[in-house]
Amino acid sequence: MIIHAAHISKYFAVEGGMYKRRTGLVRALEDVSFSVRESSTLGIVGESGSGKTTLAKIVARLIAPSKGTVEFDLARINNFRKDVQIIFQNPYASLDPKMRIKEALYEPLLIHRLAAPRQLRDKALELLDIVEMGEDALVRFPAEFSGGQRQRICIARALATQPKCIILDEPLSSLDLTIQLKLLELLLRVKEKFRLTYLFISHNLSVIKYMADFVIVLQEGRIVEQGGMHELFSHPSHPYTASLLRSARR
């Protein structure tokens, strides 16, 4: 097991009134525990408000849990920011609008000292090649690309640090179905080639079916069911899972 999450809870305080007193508590996540096997894809399913994005950010160590821990296999993941990467939902906000693509790709290489200054350009071209984009992309700004292309660039950036694990938080939401399929095919190829572990979050059950080996179903911050993808989809044991599958099949 490369990732082990134990009893994760996350609460957000609701501040109100003149003195910003705590008037309430939003329980985004409540006692969530799961494990991820190396080189597998864990799918996290839930509707909006289920806490999926909060969970993604906690695993990515962008926010801290209120309770519980996420442990990583230290033998495989020893430099967290290098070995674990995240790809966000909104391709229009994930790239710094003032940085050219080449700078965006050089940055992780420079931070982790993965290439000498002379080799930066070649490495960046390699990364663009993996995501099937040409070298003319280097000098451009994010605004010149479509949503699907920007996500490819984000994938290239994530691969720059040669990670072992990638967290994907609804990476396909605002894209056309045909582009979604192309990106998923790319993600599978990349996973195969670099033997990555994926944590794939989505509200779209067909996408989860396409990508995931194991699935967790979240409802209002709690896990209601988890298991292998095929068993869960053919014989769901929790009523919520069953209703999700029913509406998806209509």
Binding site: L177, T178, Q180, L181, L184, N204, L205, S206, V207, K209, Y210, F233, L245, A248, R249
Partner: peptide, 13 residues
Amino acid sequence: KELIRAYQAIGTL
């Protein structure tokens, strides 16, 4: 056919 391929893979369960 491209649209249908996408539909069959991830547009429907």
